[in-house]
Design a binder for these strands. Sequence first.
DNA 1: CGGAATCCAACTCGATACTG
DNA 2: CAGTATCGAGTTGGATTCCG
Lengths: 127, 127
Amino acid sequence: MVSERNNKKNYQCPVEATLDVIGGKWKPLILWQLRGEKLRFSGLRQNMQGISPKMLTKQLRELEADGLVFREVYPEIPPRVEYSLTEFGKTVIPVLEALCEWGNGYLGRECILGKNEGAKTSERLSQ
Amino acid sequence: MVSERNNKKNYQCPVEATLDVIGGKWKPLILWQLRGEKLRFSGLRQNMQGISPKMLTKQLRELEADGLVFREVYPEIPPRVEYSLTEFGKTVIPVLEALCEWGNGYLGRECILGKNEGAKTSERLSQ
DNA sequence: CGGAATCCAACTCGATACTG
DNA sequence: CAGTATCGAGTTGGATTCCG
């Protein structure tokens, strides 16, 4: 029932669907990391301090089921699995950038977290 | 502790912050409804079938604490409260539109939900 | 009318240990 | 290496009832 995802439930609006697909705590990070390069399971994990293998697996499976991420298994010993964005998956990047940009504006309103002079776009996400 | 929101936690990236502010099951709907007009509590509720007053209150309070929504109380009998977007709140509209548009693309990939010929932008949300 | 209070079910998320 | 299995704490969301 993971591979079927939620059968694209009856969303009240498309925004809900989008948030269901790319939202949550980890998916934006995953998608962002895969933006420019294939990554292996452990490679993804390194840049997401605190995620358990179980969670990472779950998120990746969902992204795969939703057609955003391609999972390629190399039948070797030791096993190797590479994750990359599908063509469709790449279409979310601009959306993520929009979210990132607005988030920077929101955070900059009175909070800090390290000021981002110069980096007025989406540099923050890549850290 | 609701009025303080989460003190802008340590987000791993601005996208997380954005999703925390405008994400979830109800907030997009609320923001979208307030896009063009002030609305009262009951007015908002009518267009969100299934939401409990508790939830609507909670969401509105959070949006207010985050500076997106303005809450104006008219000291009358019976009481009247009007909700509207702040200037800052209006800046999320383009973001919502981006999310909406991508969501339509996602939903249209193989799912139905009523085809939206002609309405290739964000008409869906307004229903 | 516009909520607040209470209780509870469901789902999310994480820690830990183990495996082909 | 790339996961799976199990357990459980925490958060979210909903139903219901009551109040100024």
